[in-house]
Write a protein that binds this DNA or RNA. Structure first.
Length: 695
DNA sequence: ATTAGGG
DNA sequence: CCCTAAT
């Protein structure tokens, strides 16, 4: 068997799409659609619109989501021309992200996307694409992302309103395109073309085009009520919708979800920009999910069982909130939820070692930044543009009456550099997926927003825009935003009840902080109080600490003959030191190992090894294919094989989890058949030579 | 320590 | 993944 070498691909600065659009202009609609059509929707799009008011706690502000049932079909989101029939089909949304037969090299296939909307300052809808494959566990994390956005946006918007919901959408095939260096065979499933490039750290060679940038040319329509305005009490209706995007997986990319989002927003909705009208497309297959609160959907169960529409408004709460904020002291409602542990819900990515340095990509290339992530300014109607300061410093309060609003258009965010590691024998499909997971991991790790003004990072969140100069239109050309790993949370005490297996981003803070600043970013300024640490998608086992660029470089010294497809970074003593190993509070019941679903690449490795070695030599299989994957014991491999065989025998509909390519399952079956037959023969007469399944 | 199989 | 019995 050919030795598998690892390839490290670093890519950086891929853009997370920020889609800005304004709902009511037909002209813009066409424009937006055109733009959308020219892009490939990658996966989940997290639709965020940051509003001027903080709706704060969803649980508090959003009244019970009204179920749009096929029967009742009620909605108080007045403007939505909801067709309950369309919205509430009984048929559950297809959750199989994989088209079993057509997506070998398409990582995610037709995507079920999650969409969220925050309403933003001036009807700007910020879309952030996220892979659906981030899975159920990441749903809450998306909230966290929004939280982070909201948190960081408050300086811009004073108050941030997160009234959002999630919806599923099929975004067509995964739009992740990988442009690998000198690789004419990229289309194939082999990485043959990549093998030669192992010496050249691809660096920027891996271009993630999974995202697109959409921008509208002008601002919102006059009849759109800017939700950001605190002065207008009547404009506070902020319906939250669970919208459906077409789930028809056969839709061509260009037809995928985003278009419908834009499209539908064009349908007039007097509720204003914050309203997402519901699609009436036939492909829409929403279903009532009941009266669950949004967060409830975070459970796997709901995610899978009820990927459907939820539409409701929370006017009253919003009003209440607003009034409170209007009277007397300005109250900034901050939410505590970001303090909670992400751990249990965070999906663990293991195959892909991802690290994201801070969003330093901007520092070197301001012009480019402006091009991609720059912002435009637009005059704003002063009547409606009253900046409400949550930070009631006297000077700000005094100025509030004369504030002009600053209108920003964010075309995209810069994404921190990501590092992925993948064996050269991995398929292009798995590479794509790895990249997807890397991005997903980064996104769901929670992030914060960095503000760059003329290349310099603006770190004082309490400064006003005016004070920082962001209100000066001449400086706005050099205003940019970056996405940064949100690792600012205080790491839990080491004595935390959480076992080491729950290592998560929170826990990761400390080890990450040890990473030399140089390894993190070009932007030295970034190494401030906020640890611009790397992020890993793989909160790996006790013995596999956070991966970092530093680790990545050291991987180069790792013998290439390590066969593991699941290449894990060498153990860092330092990191281990800060990751509490089992601290058995209760030695009685040992902490159950964290579940680590096998990735496709791992399955591939397993299948390959079993094909070669047979089904009774799990220790050899382990040594052969998972030697460096410390968390995979031979028992695990044996168990996995068992489940693989089972999986291969059941119908695709009954399968769960990350879809295993049918090809692999077929190999599982044949290998299983071969070796079981071999085993029975062995009983009859001992074989002269060791049999080997032909590959 | 490994393997095999039930839970 | 866990647990156990049997090698």
């Amino acid at each position: 068997m050919m030795l598998q070498k690892r390839l490290d691909y670093g890519f950086s600065g891929c853009q997370v799409p920020a889609m800005l659009y304004f709902p009511k202009s037909a002209k813009r609609k066409r424009s937006a659609r055109r733009k959308v059509e020219n892009k490939q929707l990658c996966a989940i799009d997290l639709l965020a619109t940051v509003a001027g008011e903080l709706l704060s706690e969803r649980e508090n502000c959003a009244p019970s989501p009204q179920c749009i049932d096929g029967a009742s079909g009620t909605t108080n989101t007045s403007k939505a021309s909801v067709k309950p029939d369309h919205l509430c089909q009984k048929e559950p949304l297809k959750t199989e992200p994989f088209d079993q037969h057509s997506c070998n090299d398409t990582v995610l296939g037709p995507e079920v996307a999650t969409k969220r909307q925050i309403s933003c300052g001036s009807t700007e809808h910020l879309h952030i694409l996220r892979p659906k494959d981030s899975g159920p566990a990441s749903l809450l994390d998306k909230y966290d992302i929004l939280d982070a956005i909201a948190r960081e946006s408050k300086t811009l918007n004073n108050r941030v309103d997160i009234s959002y919901s999630a919806a599923y959408a099929v975004a067509g095939r995964c739009g992740t395109e990988t442009n690998l260096p000198a690789s004419p065979e990229v289309e194939g499933d082999g990485l043959t073309g990549f093998q030669e490039s192992e010496n050249q750290m691809p660096g920027n060679g891996l271009d993630i085009n999974a995202v697109g940038i959409y921008g509208m040319e002008d601002s919102m329509d006059l009849d759109t009520k800017p939700p950001a305005l605190v002065s207008s009490d009547s404009s506070t209706e902020v319906p939250v919708c669970w919208n459906y995007l077409p789930s028809n997986s056969s839709l061509p990319k260009q037809e995928s979800g985003m278009e419908h989002v834009v499209d539908r927003d064009d349908d007039d909705n007097s509720s204003g920009c914050t309203h997402l009208s519901t699609i009436t497309n036939k492909a829409c297959r929403p279903r009532c999910i009941g009266n669950h609160r949004v967060r409830k959907l975070s459970t796997l169960k709901y995610w899978r069982a009820a990927p459907n529409i939820l539409k409701y408004s929370h006017i009253s709460d919003y009003d209440t909130e607003k009034k409170r904020s209007l009277h007397g002291k300005k109250i900034y409602y901050t939410r505590q939820r970001t303090q909670r542990s992400y751990c249990k819900r965070r999906k663990l990515f293991e195959r892909c070692l991802v690290s994201a340095s801070n969003g330093g990509m901007y520092s070197g290339d301001i012009p480019n930044l402006c091009e991609m992530g720059g912002i435009g300014t637009e005059a704003h109607d002063p009547r409606t543009a009253v900046l409400d300061t949550y930070d009631a410093s006297p000077s700000q309060a005094e100025q509030s009456s004369s504030y002009n609003s600053v209108k920003l258009r964010i075309k995209s965010f810069m994404v921190p550099e990501l590092f992925i590691e993948i064996p050269e024998t991995a398929t292009v499909g798995s590479l794509k997926q790895t990249v997807m997971e890397a991005v997903t991991a980064f996104l769901q790790g929670g992030m914060s927003i960095g503000v760059l003004l003329q290349g310099k990072k603006v770190r004082d969140d309490n400064k006003t825009l005016r004070q920082t100069g962001i209100s000066c239109s001449d400086k706005l050309d050099n205003l940019g935003f970056t996405l940064e790993p949100s690792l600012t949370q205080t790491p839990p005490p080491l004595t935390s009840l959480r076992g080491p297996h729950f290592l998560c981003l929170d826990d990761a803070v400390e080890p990450l902080a040890r990473i030399p600043p140089g390894a993190l970013s070009i932007d030295q300024e970034a190494t401030d109080s906020t640890p611009q640490a790397v992020l890993t998608s793989s909160p790996v086992s006790d013995h596999e600490p956070i991966h970092s660029p530093t680790d990545a470089s050291s991987l180069d010294q790792t013998p290439a003959d390590k066969l593991a497809l699941v290449a894990l970074p060498p153990v860092s003593i330092e990191a281990l030191a800060v990751v509490p190993l089992r601290k058995p509070r209760h030695p009685e019941h040992v902490q159950r190992r964290i579940r680590r679903p096998f990735s496709v690449a791992e399955v591939e490795a397993l299948v390959q090894a079993v094909e070669k070695l047979g089904t009774g030599r799990w220790r050899d299989v382990k040594l052969r294919a998972f030697d460096s994957a410390k968390h995979r014991t031979y028992v695990d491999l044996k168990d996995k094989w068992k489940t693989l065989v089972h999986t291969a025998r059941i119908s695709p509909q009954q399968r769960r989890g990350e879809p295993v390519p049918q090809e692999l399952l077929d190999r599982v079956l044949s290998a299983q058949a071969f070796w079981s037959q071999q085993q029975s023969k062995l009983h009859a007469k001992p074989p002269a030579a060791e049999p080997c399944l032909l590959l």
